[in-house]
Amino acid sequence: MTATTKPPSALVALTRNNTFLGFMFLLPAAVFLLCFLTYPLGLGVWLGFTDAKIGRDGVFIGLDNYKALASDSVFWMAVYNTVLYTFIASVLKFGLGLWLALILNENLPFKSFFRAIILLPWVVPTVLSALAFWWIYDAQFSILSWSLIKLGLIDTPINFLGDPNNARASVIAANVWRGIPFVAISLLAGLQTIPQSLHEAASLDGATGWQRFRFITLPMLTPIIAVVMTFSVLFTFTDFQLIYVLTKGGPVNATHLMATLSFQRGIPGGQLGEGAAIAVAMIPFLLASILFSFFGLQRRKWQQGGQD
């Protein structure tokens, strides 16, 4: 090369600057996320401190919304329901999902076919499958009640959605139904990375089936369990659709979750400020589960011998 080569123009120099390039490439995604995610998140926190109503900008009223909520028995009922719903549904999803994953991890005929149809409840829109559950839970013509009566187990139809405790159990069952496939298929992916040779070595050493599960499968699976269950808890905690379709929070507010209560107060009720305050009250729980997920991920890298 001779010395006559022109120095690159400013524009070319700019396109070779990684920081500038990275910024340009990130711009579309960043604009979207700032406008429709970060800004609303901040606006939501602000709205929680105002008395905004639909069609009227609110004024700052400090902690009044939260004070009102603190003495609101419906709100505390919703908190109680949310925690109960999340806890019971997550435990059931984990137990049943792990069981199903272990079954699918065996040598079965038509394994991929089974795997495919098992995911269906997760693929189908929740609202639409919830409608099917609504019909299954019908007070008069429930197919479940009918079957149980025919089997001679009960005498009168079960009032699935009309009684508070029945309604809670029913929505939890529907949520578990929808959540099992996600847990099972994700855990199955984790199970398939556990080498069979470990199991063979352990059984040569005289380990029983339970011991192999307890000391090989479970420890190897822990990192994925942590992540899967964090997601599952997150989705369950912020669930809205199932309750909205099945009970709309009823009977007499007994099955409201925080999300449905926030919707009811905020949108049909018009109290945007109060609705936003309820939504903000969910954030501490979300942070707790995100931290849980973060440390789960960290531990996984360390276990696999990777850095950082």
Binding site: P40, L41, L43, G44, A52, F240, A259, A279, I283, I290
Partner: peptide
């Protein structure tokens, strides 16, 4: 940050988003 954004659920965003 992108990963954290994935964890923000729609059910805490819909009220402010409706305003926006």
């Amino acid at each position: 940050l992108i990963f954290l954004a994935y964890l923000v659920p729609p059910s805490i965003l819909f009220i402010p988003l409706a305003v926006i």
